[in-house]
Design a protein around this nucleic acid. Structure first.
Lengths: 151, 151
DNA sequence: CTGCCACTTCAAGTCAACTTGAGGTCAAGC
DNA sequence: GCTTGACCTCAAGTTGACTTGAAGTGGCAG
């Protein structure tokens, strides 16, 4: 069993040490032991971190992600939840696609003001009716992604 | 010029009154006058709110959105910024599409544990390498969207 | 004229996911 | 054996977009 230092985990995963401690506190990951004060992690934590990042990208909160791991630590993923998220994502993708088209057109539109552009107005009407409004379930979450190259 | 009460704007737009005040404070919208203490809004504010919602969906922060309106209040949208955001959106859409496929597969996958599913493993590897990792520009932002039906 | 109550202001609170800082510890290199 | 400095803990701060609460006001129905 390869024991990794927190700094090593940080470096390999791109996740800052402070975040790793935070995740441990939240129960998302667990140190396998200590050398003195220092946490030691099993290499498997890297896979776990990838899973966490994936969940975040999918729009799950850390709390939701935590619930996806069975008490024994093995991923226990609810297929229903997964489908629901996929559907969620689907709706979001559709909204964003419509929006992207609108933006592209607006950027190319020769009218002096966008308010005079019929395409833009159509987009606006859609936005107003909520068709492409903001996600209705807490679905996406932006992140700083400081992915620091570590040292 | 039709003067709308804040409650009316809230009801028609689905944006809570507290949020409207907040937007006014931020300079995103402006009341056309007052009746006593009470704000009066021109009906045009509804269009403006639609534009704001749209901008938020596109991943703009309120500050960024504020900058899109010229001091005189007419929308003055930077076409370069718009294209850039469209490109951004495009990348995000691609990531999200890959993710959605992965989720769909994981949901349908018959393997007892997802860790044994090759498709899931591929997804995981992609996530680990950052290919479908979280958006790198503060691009998406979830919102409560309490879209309260007002009263 | 009076009272109601929807509006007002302003300060403070909330939420998620972290980061930062102060002060402490201890394994390892010299 | 002693210093070094990377790690530790715990509390508090940060950010963005709002919400909430307390205390005040004034238009209008009765």
């Amino acid at each position: 069993m390869i024991a990794l230092d927190i700094a090593e985990v940080a470096q390999r995963s791109g996740v800052p040490a402070s975040t790793l401690r935070y995740y441990e506190e939240k129960g998302l990951i667990a140190a396998t032991g200590r050398r003195g004060l220092r946490r030691l992690f099993d290499a498997a934590v890297l896979e776990r971190l990838a899973l966490i990042a994936l969940g975040q990208t999918a729009g799950f909160s850390l709390d939701e992600i935590a619930k996806m791991f069975a008490p024994d630590g093995r991923p226990r993923i609810d297929r229903k939840l997964l489908s629901a998220k996929a559907d969620d994502l689907d709706r979001t993708i559709r909204r964003m696609t419509a929006l992207r088209e609108g933006l592209r057109h607006a950027a190319a539109c020769p009218k002096p003001s966008h308010m005079e552009c019929p395409t833009f107005q159509r987009l606006l009407r859609k936005a107003a009716t909520g068709a492409i409004g903001p996600a209705d379930q807490r679905s996406l979450r932006s992140r700083q992604t400081k992915r620091r190259k570590t040292r």
